[in-house]
């Protein structure tokens, strides 16, 4: 089985951001392994996803629900639809283990979301834990640390 290179990892992170910006959620869901979790902590440097509140700690069922809801006929908070935009810095590759097929990247991003006359910016760091499954990369876990995670927000409806 061919090795995953540093470039492969970086391309993967860029491709994921593009899927989210273009709203290709079916493709995006296929990036995940079935027991993966999308975690967005509430507290700065939070280390516990379970026994204190997070902004998100979602399994595949929740993520599926989240993206399917966006297109529902009676999803009033998406009339009109939100749009989002990721500007990402070149990811750091913090772990590249081809023997185990296990990889970790750390990526700084500016995330912009807009709907109606409102637009907001979130600065964040995304940590991806990736696994090689049958030769291709999959997301095992994704952690999104908002720089201002402890601030009061209005609706954040799409996915940073």
């Amino acid at each position: 089985m061919s090795d995953i290179s540093k470039d492969d990892l970086i391309d993967f992170i860029y491709a994921e951001a593009r899927m989210l910006d273009e709203g290709h959620y079916d493709d995006w869901l296929k990036l995940w392994i079935p027991d993966g979790h999308y975690w967005m902590p509430l507290d700065y440097k939070q280390d516990d996803p379970l026994f204190v509140t997070s902004l998100m700690y979602e399994d595949m069922f929740m993520l599926k629900l989240r993206v399917e809801r966006l297109n529902g006929a009676r999803t009033f908070s998406q009339k009109p639809k939100s749009r989002c935009h990721h500007v990402i810095q070149r990811p750091f590759v913090d772990k590249l283990d081809n023997k185990e097929g296990h990889y970790v990247t750390n990526t700084s991003m500016h995330y912009v979301e807009t709907r109606l006359d409102e637009q907001f910016l979130l600065a964040l760091t995304a940590t991806h834990e990736l696994k090689r499954i049958k030769g291709s990369l999959r997301i095992a876990n994704k952690r999104v640390d908002l720089l201002n995670s402890d601030a009061a927000f209005g609706n954040i409806q799409l996915l940073p």
Binding site: M40, L42, T53, L55, L65, A152, G154, N155, I156
Partner: peptide
């Protein structure tokens, strides 16, 4: 709490819109 009452919660989105 995170599923219903977060600014990232889909149920919260429904309510806030109203």
């Amino acid at each position: 709490n995170r599923m219903i009452n977060a600014p990232t919660s889909i149920v919260g989105h429904d309510d806030l819109e109203m």
